[in-house]
Write a protein that binds this DNA or RNA. Structure first.
Lengths: 170, 170
DNA sequence: TTGGAATGTCAACAAGGCTGACTTAAACTG
DNA sequence: CAGTTTAAGTCAGCCTTGTTGACATTCCAA
């Protein structure tokens, strides 16, 4: 049953790629690829007292400078207590700066310091290098397909929050 | 600079998709998509005393029944202490069965019990449903591209171990 | 102006990674 | 056959990163 071939639909549309086995292979591809995707930054971070959570925070602060803690919470999808711990160490270590909001003093706006940018660059370079290699190997058509599927797979809620932020923040 | 358009290469090959900004967008797409990818099983598991680690173990035991502990370690890329903790609870709860090897009695071969298959089905159904929806929305061409890019991004070492196992085990 | 909502912080706990040291049993090898 | 290697499991302890609960500060609207 796991190896069934499926059949073409009434409309003549080819749905062979929705076979149970094809879907399972997609799931496994996602698992192994995500491994590869995070491997390089993880290696860099393991030498310091940081982990993947710090990487994510640094990445999105770089992408949306001046964003608030609450915004970051929505993007990352973790509790504020969890994010706060990561943020606190980054601020203590001088990689992130937290400025009290001008109009609303409850808010804290987040920025990378010079050191923060330096680390962001190291992590980003490693990850982009692998992404670039994968994209080059696969070719433009495959990359377009890759993007299309990933977008259909996303948690749309969270992603939309991020899009909104980038537009308003930039 | 982050918004540069890039240029076609000397050979006329279109490398616009290797722009720094394109790569960053690919990285973020991967992050948000992986979130969506794990969201449904995570929700199911959070009601029990299990987590993502249990899901991974159950998934691969189902895919390669009779696999040994050592094989599973190589596929999952964790330490045996970490896997053992997960495996122990699954065996105690009667979801996984561990049989002493016939030719090599040092080995333990792992199988899902009836209950194990039941849980595997629930988790798998949820994850496949989302994957199916994404694949259907994106279409066959996009799915092919998706697979191509993911394969280029994988940790080839770990994936090759898995492929070898599936071939020999089946 | 006062009470509720929003924002961020502190404390404590759990899951699931990790290393290191060790035991048991079985298989291999000189 | 003796000694070594390999597979699996265990115990102890650590780290990161998720969780909930309690709390302080600030804003805003009734």
């Amino acid at each position: 049953m796991a190896d069934g071939r499926g059949t073409a639909t009434a409309g003549g549309e080819n749905l062979l790629f929705l076979t149970d086995e094809q879907l399972r292979q997609g799931i496994e591809a996602m698992f192994f690829a995500y491994r590869g995707f995070t491997a390089d930054p993880d290696r860099i971070l393991s030498d310091m007292a940081y982990g993947r959570a710090h990487h994510r925070a640094i990445h999105f602060i770089n992408r949306a400078p001046g964003t608030t803690v609450n915004n970051l919470l929505n993007i990352l999808g973790v509790t504020k207590q969890s994010l706060n711990r990561v943020l606190r160490t980054l601020i203590e270590d001088g990689l992130v700066e937290s400025r009290v909001g001008k109009t609303d003093k409850r808010e804290r706006h987040l920025y990378l310091t010079e050191d923060g940018h330096a680390l962001e660059g190291r992590l980003s370079d490693a990850q982009r290098a692998r992404m670039r290699a994968a994209f080059r190997d696969a070719g433009p058509e495959a990359v377009a397909g890759f993007r299309t599927v990933l977008e259909a797979m996303m948690d749309t809620e969270m992603h939309r929050t991020y899009q909104r932020l980038k537009e308003s923040g930039a």
